[in-house]
Design a protein around this nucleic acid. Structure first.
Lengths: 335, 335
DNA sequence: TCAGTTTTTGGTATCGATACCATTCTTGAT
DNA sequence: ATCAAGAATGGTATCGATACCAAAAACTGA
């Protein structure tokens, strides 16, 4: 009890007058132990304040009961939902999550992966779908489930959980066109670091081509340092004002759309009469927020939960390989 | 090379014709090995694709090179910044982060802590400062650094890194009063789950008392299910309109403030003439966003970095025990 | 009652690294 | 040339659990 060292399984076994293996069984397969001994052991555990040592267990069973995740950034509310769903589902099953972020740097991904593998995780989650060749090679050589999430890759390494960003972009563009908009612009998504946003933009481009329209994209300069709300605000002033034929803008994210909506209100632009606005992400900008934004709701938490299930039961998940959870286009007041 | 089993240190040693311990030293203390052997070992490592097994290392050295973090929720952009800073700083030092979220449930915290301790982390990070007695007892008995972050506790268990929410609330209230506002309201922060918000509200209450004013708090009903932007939007309609003497509102968060600003614009309320608005959090609602919100910027990332340093060098950190990183009141256009 | 199962239990080897100690090899000073 | 001090290297025990196998106990049906 806190002599500076941890209580070991042997201490518990001696205290309860059983073999160590019996203690182990009480913890892992309680129904294989007689009730008498089970109770005695459980009391001993409580009495001594025993906390099992998983590192030792991992070594001998080669099951770490830990999963590793490499995310581009934690700093994104939709990723965060996924992590929340993932981590809580895993913990209920007795697993933990080892988390690393790369800040969108593929070289970091390689380092991070090596560091994770050194912990011998029972599975790996990746949010990026483009990897260096070293990463791909490593992932193919390990015999653990690898789940790529969010963006569905064309050729999954193992299992993929997510939805099609391309389709999301396509559907939203079609929605705006179907609403009678003549000149639909796309705002954001040009940055090299945002692969998912680019896919949505590709979907938009294809939708416009399908109705023989030329896409209008802003900012055209890929170097633009604006993002989020600021980008949305800048759009009104620097693009919409100077190009008044635009009657709808499809934003790469809800954040951006929020900026557009607020700035439009400030400048007296009527929404949706003068300008229809749509976002992407779908979180808390519904009617009661006063924004009432048309958007695409993404199953962030569901992706986390489905990923956890795939990790815990990879065989079943591999039957499908690609688990498409879809998305929901929510029409609200801004279109 | 992927026969289904991992390459072990012994394989590398045999390949390079050295003892296993030499391989170990090449990885951990390279300058204690002669250059000849070091190079030979490094080549062998690359050749065989050796990835060290940290679970084994942790067992024999009783250093896991993993830190555990228990956060209330990942789903909060300011926490996320901290996690980003924490995780990247730790990884540069060769450590990883084991992450668990409690969803604000103290009972979950206890479970999560036990699960973490089973992994024998080298240190623990907690975002909550109120713990069950079982948790406190456990944390006191372990001989590893425990860092409580964000809200500075009055009696830290070990080390604390953060800032004073009370002071932040106090300072912002004083700012509004100094700007000549007569009736400053506080919006949000009543919920039992949001301890930090409550502290800010306490600071606000004290500031008003100091100038002999009665605090105005909304929603008074603690059960209100509104939060975030929606709460902000609701304030205008349900509180401000019916109580026009209010000339300033101090919001518990930037999210809430954003809702107020947008809804105020929509309803034609002049900001800041009719209503001054302030937020809390300080992220990307500056001038270019079109919102230009007065707020308190919180050193989210710095907290993460300082926490990492404290974990890596607890002795130095314990000299201070409480590391107050402060905050910055940023006056902008809404006040 | 007894052989044949099934259930419960424990002993011992093992996982893959590091700690500790002992040994060998350098190096430099005398 | 010799010895002492220090650097480099390796052998073996060890960390704390689980796997595997074997033994003991309990149960079954004829």
């Amino acid at each position: 009890m806190g002599k500076g060292k941890w209580v070991t399984m042997k201490d518990v076994a001696d205290f309860a007058n059983v073999g160590t293996i019996t203690v182990s069984r009480v913890l892992r397969t309680p129904d294989k132990v007689s009730e008498t001994k089970r109770k005695r052991v459980q009391e001993a555990i409580k009495e001594l304040g025993y906390v099992p040592d998983n590192t030792a267990g991992a070594l001998s069973s080669s099951k770490s009961r830990v999963f590793g995740a490499i995310v581009s950034t934690i700093n994104d509310s939709v990723f965060a939902q996924t992590l929340d769903g993932l981590s809580s589902t895993l913990r209920m099953a007795g697993y933990e999550l080892l988390l690393t972020s790369t800040n969108y740097d593929p070289d970091v991904e390689e380092d991070a992966l090596l560091a994770l593998l050194a912990r011998r995780p029972d599975g790996i989650v990746l949010t990026s779908t483009t990897h260096t060749s070293a990463v791909t090679k490593l992932l193919k050589s390990v015999r653990i489930p690898v789940v790529e999430i969010w963006q569905l890759p064309s050729a999954p390494l193992d299992i993929a959980v997510g939805f099609s960003n391309f389709q999301a972009g396509y559907d939203m563009a079609r929605h705006l066109i179907d609403e009678g908009r003549k000149n639909v612009a796309f705002l954001g998504g040009g940055g090299a670091e945002d692969e998912r946003g680019r896919r949505r933009r590709d979907g938009y481009i294809n939708a416009l081509r399908d109705v023989s329209k030329e896409p209008i994209m802003w900012p055209d300069n890929e170097q633009s340092s604006l993002y989020g709300i600021e980008l949305g605000a800048a759009f009104i002033e620097r693009c919409f004002i100077s190009d008044p034929k635009i009657d709808a803008v499809m934003c790469v994210s809800d954040q951006v759309a929020l900026g557009v909506v607020c700035e439009a209100r400030r400048c007296g632009v009527k929404v949706p009469e003068d300008l229809a606005i749509s976002g992407f992400g779908g979180f808390e900008l519904a009617k009661p927020s006063g924004i009432d934004l048309t958007t695409i709701a993404v199953p962030g938490k569901e992706i986390g939960i489905a990923t956890a299930k795939a990790l815990l039961d990879p065989e079943t998940a591999r039957d499908k390989k690609v688990i498409d959870l879809g998305f929901t286009l929510i029409k609200r007041g801004t279109t």
